[in-house]
């Protein structure tokens, strides 16, 4: 298990990296934390002719405050860096809570926020969380820069809106409105393993304690995740979130929004069961956080 030969570049600026991507296009792959890409090379599932290593571009490793309580995360911010960042914990606690669910400490020391989103593994936590929080992604190529809403960035199995000459440079995650609650729940065989199924919930209540906004996003259903459970959200929005309504929401998600498949670790039926149970738990916890104002 050894990577196939490739040409290797280690630029120190974003512009240099964009130059290289412009020149090599489809033949090139950016190398972020390498925690997904290098295993793929070792298995020879991919044979890029050129690797553009982003690890020496110091301008991509940051977490910064944005406007209106948002947070801006550089594409190369490592999972372990985001995990320990006080601003993340304060402003986007859902991200803070999601990171420890990703792999093991050794992998979080290398894996990056941007790499996770660009890779869009259907079992990954961060695409689901970024979608649930309505994050925006800043994408650059040599000739242009654009902001892509998370809802338009994730396009299915390992597919994103990124063109071969584009680099994801930054992610902006907005703060939640007042009276919001959030939660993430997953079932994995061991801590750090990819989830058998997971879900993240974000809800906002109005002054009448009715649900004003709701987002339920699934990952690792065995389908083209992250899956935004829109039909379930419709059940909840405009209603008082009683236990019955929450149960109905979770049931709609499990039966209508997702289309689970089975594998050696979990049957489709079991995934559907997990979807219902975990969605209920996530919604309940999100609700509890709105009503008590407690973050953790």
């Amino acid at each position: 298990m050894k990577p196939p030969p490739f040409e290797y570049f280690a630029p120190t600026t974003i512009e240099e990296a964009l130059d290289l991507l412009d020149e090599h296009g489809w033949d090139a792959k950016p190398l972020a934390g390498g925690q997904s890409l290098i295993p793929t090379l070792n298995f020879r599932l991919a044979q890029p002719a050129v690797l553009v290593d982003l690890n020496n571009i110091s301008d991509l490793f940051y977490v910064r405050p944005g406007i209106n309580g948002s947070v801006r995360i550089g594409a190369m911010a490592r999972h372990s860096q985001v995990e320990r960042d006080a601003l993340i914990a304060e402003r986007v606690p859902l991200v803070h809570e999601a990171i420890p669910l990703i792999a093991h400490a050794q992998i979080r020391n290398r894996g990056t926020f941007g790499g996770s989103l660009a890779h869009n593994d259907p079992a990954a936590e961060l695409p689901a969380v970024t979608l649930a929080l309505d994050g925006r992604l800043r994408v650059r190529s040599l000739s242009r820069e654009r902001w892509v809403p998370a809802g338009e960035f994730f396009l299915g199995l390992f597919a994103t809106a990124l063109e071969p000459d584009e680099l994801l440079v930054e992610v902006e995650v907005p703060a939640l409105p007042p009276r919001s609650g959030w939660a993430i729940r997953e079932m994995a065989r061991r801590p750090g393993d990819f989830a058998l199924l997971g879900v993240t919930a974000v809800i906002t209540l109005d002054d009448e304690n009715e649900c004003q906004a709701a987002r339920l996003v699934f990952f690792s259903t065995g389908g083209e995740d992250p899956t935004d459970a829109r039909q379930a959200a419709e059940v909840l929005i405009g209603e008082a979130p009683t236990p019955d309504v929450i149960r109905a929401t979770a049931e709609t998600a499990a039966s209508e929004d997702i289309d689970p498949t089975g594998d050696i670790h979990a049957s489709a039926e079991y995934r559907r069961h997990l979807a219902k149970v975990l969605a209920c738990q996530a919604l309940e916890q999100a609700l509890e956080r709105v009503t008590t104002g407690a973050l953790y």
């Binding site: 298990m1 390498g34 290098i38 070792n42 050794q106």
Partner: peptide, 27 residues
């Protein structure tokens, strides 16, 4: 395993534990 799953290859890189089988030596 050479794909980041077993942890046998763990080393300290600038003081932090990482998998050496999913890093390139040039890095």
């Amino acid at each position: 395993c050479e794909h980041g799953v077993c942890g046998a290859c763990t080393i300290l890189f600038d003081g932090q534990p990482v998998r050496s089988c999913i890093m390139l030596a040039v890095q």
